[in-house]
């Protein structure tokens, strides 16, 4: 039996792969979305910025920001699940640029107004086939059980048989 890999090697590999997914996408930086990783579980974090405000009177996070945050979380979670086996299998090196799934449709359910503070989201891939995937996302602020928005989207998977 092989010796288990040193923990730093595993962490370094996974964090580098996650960073690779995120750093290429300017819009993720524009909104300031970050990802917290625990093993294979990702939590998206949206640190509050003045720029995110929709209605300044309330004030509340713009519905478009909420939608974008959910969609980013869904795409990254889906891509993360897609590359996991290659990343962990050590037989295949990840390409320099990972092709991301494309959104076919996305539906956002606004449950309460987004308060001017940090928001969190986690996505669950309900089905991921060779061509299509369906992903559900939940977002909350102070209390994990009190969602302020949830969403469902369908995605077109990149053709991974193509040589990079």
């Amino acid at each position: 039996m092989n010796k288990p890999e040193p923990v730093q090697v595993i962490k370094q590999r996974r964090d580098a792969a996650l960073q690779q997914l995120l750093s290429d996408v300017p819009y993720i930086q524009f909104l300031g979305v970050q990802f917290d990783r625990r093993g294979d579980e990702l939590t998206a974090v949206l640190p509050f910025k003045e720029d995110h405000i929709g209605n300044p009177m309330l004030p509340a996070i713009h519905g478009g920001v909420t939608a974008a945050f959910l969609e980013i979380t869904a795409i990254i979670q889906l891509s993360w699940a897609m590359i996991w086996d290659d990343m962990e299998g050590k037989t295949v090196d990840l390409p320099d640029r990972i092709q991301l799934p494309k959104t076919i449709d996305f539906t956002v359910d606004y449950l309460r107004s987004g308060l001017p503070r940090d928001a969190y989201a986690r996505a669950r891939v309900n089905r991921s086939g060779r061509r299509y995937a369906s992903v559900h996302v939940e977002a909350w602020q102070d209390n994990r059980t009190k969602l302020f928005a949830q969403g469902t989207g369908h995605f077109l998977m990149p053709d991974r048989t193509k040589a990079p």
Binding site: Y27, F30, G63, G64, E71, K102, F106
Partner: peptide, 24 residues
């Protein structure tokens, strides 16, 4: 706006930015 790019390969803007416009 290049800051809104969602697909770096093609320069296409992210669906999230289109959502924000639609919602508004």
């Amino acid at each position: 706006d290049t800051r809104l790019i969602g697909d770096p390969e093609t320069g296409v803007i992210h669906g999230g930015a289109v959502s924000a416009l639609m919602d508004t």
